[in-house]
Design a protein around this nucleic acid. Structure first.
Lengths: 193, 193
DNA sequence: TTCATTTATTGAACTTGTTCAATGTTTTTG
DNA sequence: CAAAAACATTGAACAAGTTCAATAAATGAA
């Protein structure tokens, strides 16, 4: 399963086999069962994780008990609470496996070691963070401008692989609408075909 | 006006006077009049800018001609289109001065030069990008969970200095609601005091 | 200062999305 | 396999936010 991480790294930067080995050795494998948590609100996030297998949701629960899903992470995605991880603050987020999953975790200390020893790793994470940020900007704009049915269509078009593995409830919490309304959108879409 | 950039840098990292000088010399001053553009949709964003004075809006115009404001930048904020700047793509954004403003611009080449020569500068931008990202995550969650009136209240509480310098129309485009509804929210708030 | 332009307010009718409750369907688990 | 639990669908009543149009207020430029 470390193989998928190697491929991810090789796809983004060119480093020697030795460096690759050294970097990948900083990660620890963790197997995590469906419906269990990698992180809960209040805990300090001590890891950055690469999803080798499975599906996670990263979400927040507001004062009224509603969930907002920040993102879903499948194979080759990274999961962490950046704010908690980098600043050592208690997290406001939950990270939960939605399927039996496997994840490769790196600690803060080891990540800093990697930055210091392997400058290209700094580049790897910088590029990744940037991409994530651009995607979130795009999502913000779409949320500000598009109606729920369009956002639903965009979601299933943009993430066809996620979509099949998610329930209406989860998609609703990502789109910021009620799951009943997701049902109604589906019906409407089906009827106009 | 370079003084405000020096202060910003000094506040985030510890570098020598020589390094500070070298870094700050990579920036070019630009004075920009109210209602003029630093970037328009379709152009490639060739700069990263530090606002020394004034106020900018960074926004997108959708297919229906509606504006979505990604953020407002006042003194000590940075402005750029990361996606366009880092990937050399045509921008989907507009950056417009809402007041007569002064901005310090650095080119991509000079920024890379700084990264190569002054490792702490890499840290500076990494921390900044991270903060920006965390703030956007927070905003995303709030947009998913909170009603417009609460978002309006949060906005004026969080950005009291922006608020005074903005019109209802601009705040509406940031919150993703109509400006008429901003009026109605204001009336409601005023009446319950 | 004055006139033109932009911005803000208001109301009425409308659209989008929510809530609640009931029912049916699928998935999990012992 | 059967029972329980989780998930999905539907409708009716409601709430949140939009749209359009009219008017008032503020700002800016000559």
């Amino acid at each position: 399963m470390i193989e998928s991480l190697r491929q991810y790294v090789a796809h983004h930067i060119s480093i020697s086999e030795n460096e690759m080995e050294e970097f990948c050795n900083l990660f620890h494998k963790k197997t995590i069962k469906k419906k269990t948590f990698l992180l809960r609100e209040g805990e300090v996030c001590e890891f950055e994780g690469f999803v080798a297998k499975g599906l996670f949701r990263v979400y927040h629960i507001d004062q009224n008990g509603f969930e907002q899903i920040l993102y879903f992470a499948i194979e080759n995605w990274w999961i962490t609470d950046i704010d908690s991880f980098t600043n050592g603050k208690p997290s406001q987020l939950f990270i939960e496996a939605l399927e039996d999953s496997e994840v490769l975790l790196i600690s803060k200390k080891d990540k800093e070691f990697a930055y210091a020893k392997l400058p290209l790793i700094e580049k790897l994470f910088r590029v990744m963070t940037q991409k994530t940020h651009v995607a979130l900007q795009r999502r913000m704009i779409d949320n500000l401008s598009k109606a729920a049915d369009q956002r639903y269509l965009d979601f299933i078009e943009k993430y066809p692989n996620h979509y099949k593995r998610l329930t209406n409830l989860q998609i609703a919490a990502y789109l910021g609408i009620s799951h009943e309304f997701v049902s109604k959108i589906r019906r409407k879409i089906a009827s106009r075909k």
